[in-house]
Design a protein around this nucleic acid. Structure first.
Lengths: 167, 167
DNA sequence: TTAGGTGCAAATTCTTTGCACCCTG
DNA sequence: CAGGGTGCAAAGAATTTGCACCTAA
């Protein structure tokens, strides 16, 4: 997983930010933030909910949604995905890039000094200001590859109806 | 917009692909594909629906959804966004990159030979196979920048409740 | 003709909101 | 103690599906 001291650091940052913003530090918020901070899965709200519920059996899904967006507004988590709606959260605020499986949606961070220093064409400035740039790599993860190898030992896969999940 | 001959070429490619796959070429499919092929907006299903309806008043939103995913399965359109759910479609199949406005979601393509040849760290191979890599640039588009300049002539913007839409 | 495609409406799934009670500061 | 925060249930969006009729091939 993620280094324990890193998680600790993120939690302290959260506590400081919460105090600075004047929002309360509740159990729920702590656990929800801890979950995102400790995960490499870039979980969505539903996934965070499932895990946090094992520790706080009474949390509600709507609290998870509200808290994730609160964390986002506080600048403590970033999002992966285009806009509201099937968004996934990421507590890693350092520059990094994403690998996303086009079959199952698995997402992983990776870093690269070279990619952090991308040279964006000047033409892009005509669209508007640039806040950030990152690389998104799409592929088929190991598990999905293994899964299809198992399902179709050799035969051709049905050409229809099978791509369907995507970036 | 997009060069007319380019749109024409995409339409012909669609007709050939439809024949090859044995699917029927209906008015609806033609119009829906034309809309995606002619747009630089990377429209979502709802947006395609609104425009196509002006030409085919009886199309239904579900036909738009079904057709867009059909086009996707035929390899004629790509998607922008992480997975099913608030996905936006893109008929530009040449290598390219995206600019996305974090406020309003506006999306634009741009190309760069340098960015097409990104050097992906070897470590990424441990996640799975690589199908594609592209750069996503986030920023605030001209219109949104103008809009906030108008709304808040000089004063500090309310720190709370205003980021909220995002990649 | 005739299978695939469409429109409609209902069903799902995902996310947000209204409200009364609870807990942090 | 007071106001923000939470859980619950209901409201809204967004997307998919079942079915009977229609149409491209």
């Amino acid at each position: 997983m993620i280094d324990h001291s890193e998680i600790q650091g993120r939690l302290e940052k959260f506590q400081a930010a919460a105090k600075a913003a004047g929002v309360k530090l509740t159990h729920q918020r702590l656990e929800i933030f801890r979950e995102v901070a400790a995960s490499q899965e870039h979980p969505d709200a539903e996934a965070v909910f499932r895990t946090v519920k094992t520790r706080l059996p009474t949390v509600s899904l709507d609290t998870v949604y509200r808290t994730l967006w609160l964390l986002h507004d506080l600048g403590l988590v970033a999002t992966l995905g285009p806009r509201r709606g099937s968004v996934r959260f990421d507590a890693n605020l350092d520059p990094h890039h994403h690998y996303v499986c086009v079959r199952c949606g698995l997402a992983r961070d990776f870093t690269s000094a070279e990619l952090d220093a991308l040279d964006i064409p000047a033409a892009v400035n005509s669209f508007g200001s640039i806040v950030a740039a990152h690389v998104e790599v799409r592929g088929v993860c190991r598990d999905c590859a293994a899964r299809s190898a198992a399902a179709e030992p050799a035969a051709a896969s049905p050409p229809e109806q099978e791509a369907r999940r995507e970036t």
